[in-house]
């Protein structure tokens, strides 16, 4: 695609005539999203982050079906073996294939990460948008509720839940989901406070549109930039949280695996069987890095300042 902007309607020069060749400009009207995507694609680290995140996700979800071992199949005869052509990443003390366990663990870690982020997106964005847009007393009450949840010490909260309801993976999801939307709600509310003062929102009110429609069509799209960035950064944060809980023995329970569990097990034997720690830790760190690179890249790409120069 060419870089001549035939879609310019302005009678005066376009506000952003770009000197650099703009690949991928759609025929009609480059959206701000299109621009952001373009800037994202030029960011090498972000591109790497995106590619690696997708790769890890796909491999984690498909991989366990392709390896010849089961995540909990023990082989007590051989015990821990160092990496070999049969077991690419070695086996643990119970003779379980480490690669299979990493893939399987990735499935759980990533699910926790994405699910909690989805929860934080839906609840956090709606909650924050309603609170910020309607303002007044409702806003004050809603935000105090967030403050109270914020003040709960998270680990204690999880321990209490575990004591009350016993060990359950669903509980872990619930606990993480319950806290992950709080920051999102605050971020969105802050943005909405700004957006609702904008004239186009006032114009939408003057058009007679109802409040839900204004929030969904005019307010939320205008706060999505920070939301996407924060969501991308929530995934690794939640995965780290899950790992920490599993490391403390409060999260995923053996024989199931998650990256946190694997790192915990690996750390216990790292002086004798270093591969038990190295492989899961490497995959986990790389994934966290990737997601953070992607988040940072998105932040730069969606920066309204960047969008206007």
């Amino acid at each position: 695609m060419g870089n001549d902007r035939t879609t310019d309607v302005a009678t005066n020069p376009a506000p952003r005539a770009r000197a650099d060749g703009t690949a991928g400009v759609p025929e009609q009207g480059t959206s701000l999203w299109g621009d952001a995507l373009y800037r994202l694609r030029r960011n090498r680290l972000a591109r790497f982050g995106l590619a690696f995140s997708i790769l890890v996700t796909v491999v984690s979800f498909i991989g366990p079906y392709c390896t010849p071992y089961s995540y909990d199949a023990t082989d007590l005869v051989y015990g821990a073996q160092s990496p070999s052509p049969e077991h690419w990443c070695g086996t643990d003390t119970l003779g379980r294939d480490v690669l299979t366990r990493i893939l399987y663990g990735g499935r759980i870690s990533l699910t926790v990460g994405f699910l909690a982020t989805a929860v934080s997106l839906v609840i956090g964005v709606l909650y924050g948008a309603v609170s910020g847009y309607l303002g007044g007393k409702l806003d004050a009450v809603m935000m105090r509720a967030v403050d109270i949840l914020y003040a709960l010490p998270f680990t204690v909260f999880v321990i209490l839940l575990t004591v009350a309801f016993g060990q359950d993976l669903r509980l872990l999801f619930l606990a993480i989901g319950a806290v992950s939307w709080l920051t999102m709600a605050r971020i969105v509310r802050g943005q909405v406070l700004f957006v609702r003062r904008q004239e186009y929102v006032e114009a939408a009110v003057a058009l007679g549109l109802g409040t839900p429609r204004i929030i969904l069509r005019h307010v939320i799209p205008n706060v999505l930039g920070p939301v996407i960035v924060y969501a991308t950064l929530t995934v690794p944060a939640v995965m780290l949280l899950e790992a920490a809980l599993s490391f403390l023995g409060l999260g995923v329970q053996p024989p199931m695996s998650s990256w946190g569990v694997l790192i915990k097990e690996g750390a216990e034997k790292m002086d004798i069987y270093p591969w038990l720690l190295i492989w899961p830790a490497a995959v986990f760190s790389l994934t966290l890095f990737s997601l953070n690179f992607l988040g940072d890249g998105l932040r730069d790409a969606l920066d309204p300042q960047g969008a206007r120069d």
């Binding site: 959206s31 999203w33 904008q198 004239e199 186009y200 006032e202 114009a203 799209p221 205008n222 999505l224």
Partner: peptide, 11 residues
């Protein structure tokens, strides 16, 4: 103000 009365994210 025509510059701010249209929603920048919508066609």
């Amino acid at each position: 103000d025509p510059m701010t009365s249209l929603n920048p994210y919508l066609r």
